[in-house]
Design a protein around this nucleic acid. Structure first.
Length: 707
DNA sequence: GAGTTTGAAACT
DNA sequence: CAGTTTCAAACTC
């Protein structure tokens, strides 16, 4: 009664790691005899894909072959180096934190972040695979490419850990959300008993909040098992090395014109997002190959393989993501994770799922997708400040219209994932090829949500992430570090540029863009030149402005980068603990005089100039183009924007007729300056507004209304 | 580009 | 809170 495939699957699910290889099993031999299909190798993963309609392609996928290809596994050039060094540098950063920060915790946290991106990466890979013109079936048939949770082929370090407990995985089937929901008689769902949704919620809730990564395993009897990934640190330590190695591998192969078989299928699988980078380059055609027919295939053949991925999918999304920037100066901003709760379409079970997304990521993504520079501000207390997601759930339901999915898309969620992934990549293909891979990947998450709700029928390439991010509620009390430099200006994250973390760290300022006399980029964003503070003190303009250092910064030993997001945030908190207004906007504007804008703006703390007479940029007031105020302690103030204690609103200042005396002339001059400044400032404001409207980002904190 | 000046930030 | 030191930007040559 069972088809050979089913039997094969069953054989797989009942085998244990202690058992002889599946290939040696009687069942497998039997299957081999029956089927003309030559399995490349009896990967349990392939077995995890029981689709009766699976084309032979499934079994002959070169991907599977490549999976076995360990030619690029030599990791000589990368070695333990990166993680060790990173740890070291992180320790260094800790020295800058005299606050009550537990270095261990931080370090672990960072590693967790690093790990999470691997997992998330995998998710993206699966999306990418869907878009591949190779066909969905192949992809589906080779879950190893995406299955972070696989017990024997795990690419994720934490999952590798799980190999230490093979019993846990043996004979078990890892569950996914959609797995149970979309079980049909044609897939493995008939074999897997759907556990109670509540049980899943419980377990996954644990995943969500536990520090340790966990995996949910559905035993063959339908029972859920919760398993922690032990010793995640060790696994993570080497992971970055793998990443870079793999990136190099991709790069090398890329140059050789090979794409299809690049995907990592090895146990030391490098991050899939690297693969996605690669695919992006061809995404246009890949996407073009996607048709509803293919989607249909996905429906038909997305059984267990997908379900196994799904568990990881979810798990990975629950991690904070902090993709390691090969350059050290990461291109993406991420402060933390937004927990996203999106509901299944009406056609589904109604179960609500939790996915964690980084709002900053989303925002960054949207900005990139807009093809406009990312504003460097994280906003201080700006009203437009993006909130630092602190575990507050972001209900995408409130963002997206819950358009019903068409009946028949029974696997809507997962299918949508695929489809969305494709769409996103298509969008991404239009974007700059220099977009960091992690950003592209993140956009999948976002688009996934929105497009999910949009339904498969009317999905388009709209940049939904923009709407989503713009819809995120913002808190004026939270601050978030954002990326500093426009994506296109930063070093790309393509495979060509991925393996230069060390280089970046070690590069001298000379290697960076030649420093000019100005501390601003051509686009007006600040850049620093810190040498001793590692950009973790207010001496650093970038840090003080609440932005990550840019690629164009000439700082040395910079920690003000997304790689050290935690360090940055901790340092920031420490500074704020001493001075809550340390990151508050320095320039405030009196509300009642806002119509006269520039002239009414003042430096909040005032300056303390002694020699410059507030006529040079040493003076913070002057530098901010605002006049000095009574709060200033300057000596001999001659601030052209307004001297201390003599601020007079423009319209009250002078008239044509009262310029008879010297004071009046001086005032006129002063007012003229102010008017000039006002014009200039209005222009700046306008440009800022435009900038923000394009990028949906916070305004610069340097010019805000006071409370 | 090197050296100096300056004032904010950090420290004591 | 005041004095001192450190720091990086601004400035000068």
């Amino acid at each position: 009664m069972d088809s050979p495939e089913i039997r094969k699957i069953k054989a797989n699910t009942t085998s244990s790691s202690d058992s002889p290889p599946v290939q040696d099993s009687p069942v497998f031999s039997y299957i081999n005899n029956l089927s003309p299909i030559q399995p490349v190798k009896a990967s349990h993963l392939a077995q995890g894909f029981p689709g009766l309609n699976s084309p032979p392609l499934v079994f002959t996928s070169p991907r599977i072959n490549s999976h076995r290809d360990t030619s690029f596994l030599k990791r000589p050039q990368y070695q333990p180096l990166s993680s060790a060094e990173k740890r070291k540098t992180q320790d260094e950063a800790k020295k800058f934190l005299d606050g009550p920060v537990d270095p261990k915790i931080t370090q672990l946290h960072m590693r967790l972040i690093t790990d999470s991106q691997d997992c998330e990466t995998k998710i993206r890979v699966e999306s990418q695979q869907c878009s591949s013109s190779e066909g969905v079936d192949e992809y589906l048939a080779d879950p190893s490419e995406v299955d972070c949770v696989d017990s024997t082929q795990s690419a994720s370090p934490c999952l590798k850990q799980s190999n230490n407990v093979p019993e846990t995985f043996t004979g078990s089937k890892e569950t996914t959300l959609y797995d149970n929901k979309h079980n049909t008689g044609t897939d493995l769902g008939t074999e897997a008993k759907a556990p109670s949704e509540q049980a899943k919620e419980d377990l996954e809730g644990k995943q969500t909040f536990d520090a340790k990564p966990v995996k949910i395993i559905e035993q063959s009897d339908g029972e859920l098992q919760y398993d922690e990934c032990p010793n995640i640190e060790s696994g993570l330590s080497v992971n970055n090395a793998y990443k870079r190695e793999y990136r190099q591998h991709l790069h090398d192969q890329d140059r050789g014109g090979k794409h299809e078989d690049d995907c990592d299928h090895t146990p030391q699988s490098p991050p899939g997002r690297l693969q996605i980078v690669q695919v992006y380059e061809n995404s246009a055609e890949n996407v073009g190959a996607i048709s509803k027919g293919m989607i249909g295939n996905m429906i038909l053949h997305a059984p267990k393989a997908r379900s196994e991925q799904g568990g990881m999918h979810r798990r990975c999304l629950q991690f904070e993501e902090a993709p390691p920037c090969a350059t050290g100066k990461r291109d993406c901003s991420l402060s933390s994770i937004q927990e996203v709760n999106y509901s299944e379409p009406p056609s589904g079970t109604g179960e609500s799922k939790l996915v964690k997304l980084s709002y900053a990521d989303l925002k960054a993504t949207s900005k990139r997708q807009m093809g406009t520079p990312l504003p460097p501000r994280f906003g201080g207390n700006s009203p437009s400040t993006v909130p630092k997601p602190s575990g507050i759930g972001l209900h995408l339901n409130s963002i997206v219209n819950a358009a019903p999915l068409v009946r028949g898309t029974t696997r809507s969620i997962k299918l949508a994932d695929h489809y969305i992934g494709v769409q996103v990549m298509k969008s991404a293909s239009v974007m700059s090829s220099h977009l960091p891979d992690n950003v592209r990947c993140r956009s999948i998450s976002l688009n996934m949500v929105e497009k999910d709700s949009a339904g498969p029928e009317d999905r388009d390439e709209s940049e939904t992430s923009i709407a989503a991010s713009s819809a995120v509620p913002q808190s004026p009390h939270t601050v978030v570090f954002e990326r500093h430099v426009p994506t296109h200006e930063k070093r790309g994250f393509d495979a060509e540029n991925v393996d230069d973390y060390e280089e970046c760290k070690q590069s001298s300022p000379k290697k960076k863009r030649k420093k000019t006399s100005s501390t601003k980029d051509s686009d007006g964003t600040k850049r620093c030149n810190c040498k001793k503070t590692k950009c973790l003190k207010l001496y650093c303009d970038c840090f003080a402005a609440g932005v990550y250092c840019a690629e164009s910064c000439a700082c040395q030993g910079c920690f003000n980068i997304t790689d050290y997001e935690d360090t940055v945030l901790e340092t920031r908190q420490h500074i704020e603990s001493r001075n809550p207004l340390a990151f508050a906007p320095k320039i405030v504007q009196h509300e009642e005089e806002i119509q006269f804008t520039p002239s009414s703006a003042r430096h909040k703390r005032g300056c303390n100039c002694k020699k410059s007479m507030c006529l040079k940029k040493y003076c913070e007031c002057y530098q901010a183009n605002v006049g000095c105020s009574s709060g200033c302690r300057c000596d001999g103030c001659k601030n052209v924007y307004g001297r201390k204690g003599e601020y007079i609103p423009i319209e009250h200042g002078v008239g044509k007729d009262n310029v008879s005396d010297k004071a009046g002339k001086e005032r006129i001059e002063s007012t003229f300056d102010e008017k000039l400044e006002m014009v200039a400032t209005k222009k700046d404001i306008l440009s800022t507004e435009l900038y923000d409207s394009h990028n949906l980002t916070p305004l610069a904190p340097s010019f805000q209304c006071s409370e």
